[in-house]
Design a binder for these strands. Structure first.
Lengths: 151, 151
DNA sequence: TTCAGTGCAAAACTTTTGCAGTTAT
DNA sequence: ATAACTGCAAAAGTTTTGCACTGAA
């Protein structure tokens, strides 16, 4: 797979250098399209570049965030997670706090909330990538959720 | 002021002991009705009980959370903040990431989002106390450089 | 050549925990 | 009396930083 090549080009266009470390980190973000902690990115990328240092991972993820390549957010546990940004597919996540399952929440309902807030308060919330914690149907005692399972 | 007395009674009703530490901590939560970090609670409460220890603050805040007396949430910076719970007034917050200003967002719009999610996905999100980061009218109005984004 | 990027180690920072002593009930 | 609670100190865990070295452009 080479889905990471356009991303490296994006970085290069912003004056950022193409290093082996950044390459493997971006590769892992590409091939694991979910929410990854710095630690997990480190472990995945280390398999391909054993000398990789965790500090480099943190610095690279911050660089990627500033370059708009990844989205960062903080879980209810206080951990920072990163996900490759795909502006063409706005989506959000539902994460079950009991079973850990994760589902995709399409953009429109959240978009409606955003509009209401903008109209009523002239406030522009960061709602590009909402991760809602709660209980899934199964864990809440209901039926099986019918939304798509996320990676 | 004695708005903290009913809260202490609530704790007592749950079999929790009334200690000087818990008293001053609850007092501070009462008299500073906003979002407080453990560190800030510690500093405020220490003025009234200098021997207070930060570990006690953490343990007490966790106790209060378990007792449904406070709500806890994590900021985009990864810090945990606490706020006195007032079930009778469901509300949320809008926090400007540039000027730090904070406004109350009434419950209904978020409640509608919750309903939509429950109906469409049978998922029950924790939306008792949402804190949305974004840009307020003033900060979004002027020259809007590409600022650091946390979502 | 040059400076952005990296590795390393140590620090910074928030939060948790073990344990012994204290205190509310 | 006794179990809950607290203080202390140390640890745990994530993230940042100073500095010298390396390597991409």
């Amino acid at each position: 797979m080479s889905c990471h090549l356009p991303l490296l080009a994006t970085l290069h266009a912003q004056g950022l250098r193409r290093t082996p470390q950044r390459t493997v980190i971006v590769e892992q973000l590409c091939h694991n399209r979910g929410h990854l902690t710095a630690e997990r990115v480190f472990r995945l990328a280390s398999r391909h570049l054993p000398a990789l240092n965790i500090a480099t991972v943190y610095r690279t993820l911050e660089t990627l965030r500033a370059a708009q390549v990844v989205t960062a957010f903080v879980t209810p546990d206080g951990l920072t997670e990163y996900e490759l940004r795909r502006p063409e597919v706005r989506h959000h996540h539902l994460r079950c706090r009991r079973c850990g399952g994760e589902w995709v929440l399409p953009g429109p309902p959240v978009e409606r909330l955003r509009s209401q807030i903008v109209n009523a308060h002239q406030f522009h919330p960061d709602l590009d990538h909402l991760v809602l914690t709660g209980l899934c149907a199964k864990c809440a005692g209901g039926a099986t959720p019918r939304s798509t399972q996320a990676g």
